[in-house]
Computed example of a mutant assay.
Amino acid sequence: MFLIIKNIPSTINKYDLEKLIKPSLEGQFWQKSGSLKSVKIIEVSYDEKPFEYHGVAFVTPDDVAMRVIHSLNGKSAFGALLNVHEYEVRNWQNDRRQRNELPAKGLKTDKRKRDRRRSGIRIN
């Protein structure tokens, strides 16, 4: 399962993120241990200036990944509160905004005037 650790400080590197996750992977004698397959740091920039950093980790098996989420979410590390969630891979073909379908009769339509996504960002 892919995990996303949101809004980490810019001073954290890949090794620090691995050190933070690894203690949560080891289970007690009645729990099974998991493994950390990969870790990546994503930089989100706007107008060529980085302003957000997120970590993405791949943990197996899924129940161990859920244990990692519960143990790290809300924890203070590196001067920031960690926000850990399951990373959901989305497909642009499933986006309702890409389809030009008319709504069914009697259903409310989306009342948003514009797109809520942030424009002008770049992910490295």
Rank of each mutant, 00 (worst) to 15 (best):
F2Q: 12
I8V: 14
S10Y: 03
S10E: 11
T11P: 02
N13H: 12
Y15A: 11
Y15S: 08
Y15T: 10
D16W: 00
D16L: 09
E18Y: 02
E18R: 11
E18V: 07
K19D: 15
K19C: 12
I21D: 01
K22Q: 09
K22V: 14
S24I: 12
L25F: 07
E26D: 08
Q28Y: 06
F29V: 04
K32V: 13
S33E: 08
L36T: 09
L36N: 07
L36V: 05
L36M: 03
I42M: 13
E43N: 03
S45Q: 14
Y46C: 02
K49M: 07
E52L: 15
E52I: 11
Y53V: 02
G55D: 08
F58M: 12
P61N: 12
D62H: 07
M66P: 00
R67M: 01
I69D: 07
I69E: 06
H70T: 13
L72I: 07
G74Y: 03
S76A: 11
A77S: 15
G79C: 08
A80Y: 11
L81G: 08
L82N: 06
N83M: 01
N83T: 09
V84P: 10
H85G: 01
E86C: 04
Y87M: 07
Y87I: 00
Y87H: 14
E88S: 07
E88D: 01
V89C: 04
V89P: 00
N91G: 04
R97A: 13
E101L: 15
L102S: 09
P103F: 15
P103L: 14
G106Y: 10
G106V: 04
G106C: 08
L107I: 10
T109K: 15
T109I: 11
D110W: 10
R112F: 09
R112T: 11
R112N: 14
R116F: 10
R117K: 14
R117S: 04
R118H: 05
I121E: 05
I121F: 07
R122V: 14
I123Q: 02
I123R: 09
